[in-house]
Design a protein around this nucleic acid. Sequence first.
DNA 1: CCCATGCGCTAAATCGCATTAGCGCGTTGC
DNA 2: GCAACGCGCTAATGCGATTTAGCGCATGGG
Lengths: 347, 347
Amino acid sequence: MTLADVARRAGVSQTTASFVLSGRREEMRISSQVEARILRAVQETGYRPNVVSRSLRTGSTHTIGFVSDTVATTPFAGHLIWGALDAARDHDRLLLIAETEGDPALETQLIETMRDRQVEGIVLASMYTRWANVPRALLGGPSVLLNVLPSKETLVASVIPDEAEAGRAAARLLLEAGHREGIYAVGVGVDPVRTPKGSVAASERLLGIEDVLSSAGTGLAGGVFLDDWQPLGGYDATKQILAREVPARALICFNDRVSFGAYQALEDAGLKIAHDVSVVSFDDEPVASWLRPGLTSVALPHYELGRKAIEVLLSLDGASRPGAVHRVEMPVRVRESVGRVELLAGA
Amino acid sequence: MTLADVARRAGVSQTTASFVLSGRREEMRISSQVEARILRAVQETGYRPNVVSRSLRTGSTHTIGFVSDTVATTPFAGHLIWGALDAARDHDRLLLIAETEGDPALETQLIETMRDRQVEGIVLASMYTRWANVPRALLGGPSVLLNVLPSKETLVASVIPDEAEAGRAAARLLLEAGHREGIYAVGVGVDPVRTPKGSVAASERLLGIEDVLSSAGTGLAGGVFLDDWQPLGGYDATKQILAREVPARALICFNDRVSFGAYQALEDAGLKIAHDVSVVSFDDEPVASWLRPGLTSVALPHYELGRKAIEVLLSLDGASRPGAVHRVEMPVRVRESVGRVELLAGA
DNA sequence: CCCATGCGCTAAATCGCATTAGCGCGTTGC
DNA sequence: GCAACGCGCTAATGCGATTTAGCGCATGGG
């Protein structure tokens, strides 16, 4: 069933049918009788337009390429896709998705494949925030980096979570609860600073934390570097911290998995979370709400990041300055893992 | 840059250029000199074929539609997409993805939109296994159901996890450890049977469990129905079970979140997991490996399910019987939450 | 010497739609 | 009464590739 079939059945030219179906009837002064005939023909034939053909003619596919390193590793990174999907639908676009598995050659190939398919633009996404060079292939057309911070100056815009502000928020939570001493970082080293390689989250969060703490005339009592932020590491690190000279009164765990391990270590040590030691965390994975007491965590705004990337991409023709870095706010999810110091045991 | 440009530059016809670039040189007896000229022209111009145009002509887009209810809720359901993406790439296809958010009208609309884009086929996926009617729109072309079991007879093939066998596996784990009495289900009611509405997992797992237990001359001591399988529910349910007459020696938790709550309840009661009470679970979410002792869980094979769906879709022209239900094995991940009965306290 | 054959390549049609240019007819103006 | 104009619609072209049909030339056979 093609437009020609419909036109023939309605006894009009293809042109007329096209005008009617694309809503240009009035503009083209097609009579309502003719319109009715065409619409009836559409009904009867069950005609559906061939979008491939339309795309070839108009030069617009209404499709956006979404190339990510991996959808698999971080569970709720799927929300990145979710947000992108939603924003795309709001603008009547569909997403063509592919995964590079971290392979640069594959990345280039996939970007080119997508351009060959005449996508309107490409979102190059990482599932965790990291620094990276902008692949040359990306420069061949409109594109946006998602969760990727370009290592060098570039014209490609990027969308990332506001990690520094998140760090400040976490530190403020502790200050407001009266914490001043015995605040430890779990996941990054302090003095000398040591953060997992390539992790924007680690260094920016730490910067934000120290910014706020030093403004309040205090600072971190210490920290334990972890290469990989998993529960076991959090457990071991917390054990270490509990053996330090300055007694731990608050832990800033650099993600929820680390917090999970920290909870186990604190429980093993017979310490009551929030009562003896406060814990703040980052990411707000589901497990944060499962723990008892509920873990206060600064959330990664995956959904919003995904949305934003699409919106920046689609408005590249003006609003957004080329090369702009858009930072998306990380909301604080307050639960019960931070206790007020005056109420703390031994205060 | 079009094929015409390349041809002009090489001093040949578009036809010849097309033959060379599509690897039909020998067949069409194009001389190697001409081939060289064309290849050089391609190099010099940086020509890339316009896939939209090619699709219009050949009628094949090399694109598969992936329509899911939601990528968001279950974290590792992203692995469904991962598997599908991988399988698609193996067959040189790209995936067009969209999400219905459970809205049937949107579902129909998205399926039609994808057909309009001439996708080769559509995978209709649910992020958790459920029964559903096959939407009429899906019948308009090749399609496969993923994680969806058709309520009525249909010609559409489906791919789902083998939940009944998973239930059998879970029960066997307990039997092999010597468990016979005090085996409780956490998540579904027993006597009378009561399972969350629409959940294939619940009823098939239970069927498998009872099958194996009754073959061994025993059965479930009881069960607690939960509408939603979350940690809090698991916690409450386990408390209830611990108050029952027959002492609990083993819990079959219907997913890992429920297990998480069960762990908390068992710890609260001063019971040692594996030593006093064994726990087996389903899904194998990441948290299963974070818990201590590690939670033995029968895994949802998300990646494999995604792969299989694409493979079934692409071989619909023969291999797979129409309407076939493909059940994918759920692998057992043995950790430390099941203890041998002779070693159990009080045995 | 002429026809048949094969070689190496090209002209032109086609896919389904959007769009520009313009056609035929009736009405109006002077 | 004829030009000018507006109305309602259509013919024809192009998007960029693939593919069918066939062209002109050289060669070989009889």
